[in-house]
């Protein structure tokens, strides 16, 4: 009996969460996919009618804006957060005196809720309250910085706030990566008289490739899921200029009573996430099998 328990306890312990995930994650993904093929409006209906919701989705100018915004936001957010994170990490890596203190400062934004970040940046970027107003009060009468209320630029304010929030976290990742590079190689390079910039570009950064990949994956799924930041910062506005797929889905499901549209947009979002994550998982698993 005891032996049997000993052998099976891990399975028994894992089973509930395994089944919970099976039902509440994969089960509901399947349910959403089903709903996306129906004419569901206010309440779910289960008669499959084909791709009508996807046709409607891709006919909708608002969805087009949302998808475009996702690519603009995702690309810039990931790129700037990584570049900025790397630069800060390299600066901090110079064995400076109050490194611990500075590291904490850069990491702190990550501890904030995105709602707080969004609200704070909403005030900072508001032309009548924030930066523009401050500059005007200093005497620069012609200074304008009205991206927040300009439909063509509003999405970039979301990038600014997102980068502010995430780059400290990326910095921490990269700093750990920089520190894990074998010091012997660096010392050898120094003895050979290789300049510091060359050490970084030729030795340290290339050996950090896995860290880049991790940072990319974390940032990419943050970007695709982004919802609260937009809601707090711009409310999707001006108009619907800063709508993202997640806010589009929320509007359709909960404000407009259009479950079919919401489901189809959720499925498209999932496909986008999969197209980022699956290659990563694939390469991870293959590496493990190779070893």
């Amino acid at each position: 009996m005891f032996k049997w328990l000993e052998k099976n306890i891990p399975k028994i312990v894992i089973a509930p969460s395994f089944f919970a995930i099976l039902v509440f994650v994969y089960g509901f993904i399947a349910w959403t996919a089903w709903i996306s093929f129906t004419k569901s409006r206010l309440m779910p209906k289960y008669d499959i009618v084909g791709f009508i919701q996807y046709d409607r989705l891709f006919d909708s100018p608002r969805w087009e804006v949302a998808l475009n915004n996702l690519f603009i936001f995702g690309f810039l957010f990931i790129l700037i957060a990584m570049v900025l994170g790397l630069i800060i990490a390299i600066f901090l890596d110079q064995r400076i005196r109050i490194e611990g203190f500075l590291r904490t400062i850069y990491l702190y934004p990550m501890a904030l809720s995105l709602i707080v970040t969004g609200t704070a940046w909403k005030w900072i970027l508001n032309p009548g309250l924030g930066i523009e107003n401050v500059f005007k009060n200093w005497g620069f009468e012609n200074f304008t910085f009205d991206w927040l209320i300009n439909p063509d630029y509003a999405i970039y304010t979301v990038v600014i706030a997102g980068v502010w929030q995430a780059s400290g976290f990326v910095m921490a990742l990269f700093l750990a990566g920089l520190r894990s590079v074998d010091q012997e190689i660096i010392k050898a390079a120094k003895v050979d008289g290789v300049p510091t910039t060359k050490i970084y570009t030729a030795i340290i950064i290339p050996s950090m490739a896995p860290i880049f990949l991790s940072a990319f994956i974390v940032l990419a799924h943050l970007a695709i899921k982004s919802f609260d930041l937009v809601i707090a910062l711009t409310g999707g506005g001006p108009g619907y200029a800063t709508d993202l797929p997640a806010t589009y889905m929320y509007t359709m499901a909960f404000s407009r009573g259009d479950l079919g549209q919401a489901a189809s947009s959720a499925i498209i979002m999932m496909i986008v996430i999969f197209s980022v994550v699956v290659p990563y998982l694939y390469s991870e698993l293959r590496n493990k099998n190779d070893q």
Binding site: R41, P151, G237, P238, Y240, A241, D258
Partner: peptide, 19 residues
């Protein structure tokens, strides 16, 4: 109007007003 139709009109109105 129902939510979906009213929302569709509002989308156009707000997009026009803000651009």
């Amino acid at each position: 109007l129902r939510g979906a139709q009213a929302g569709a009109i509002t989308d156009v109105v707000t997009a026009h007003f803000n651009s």
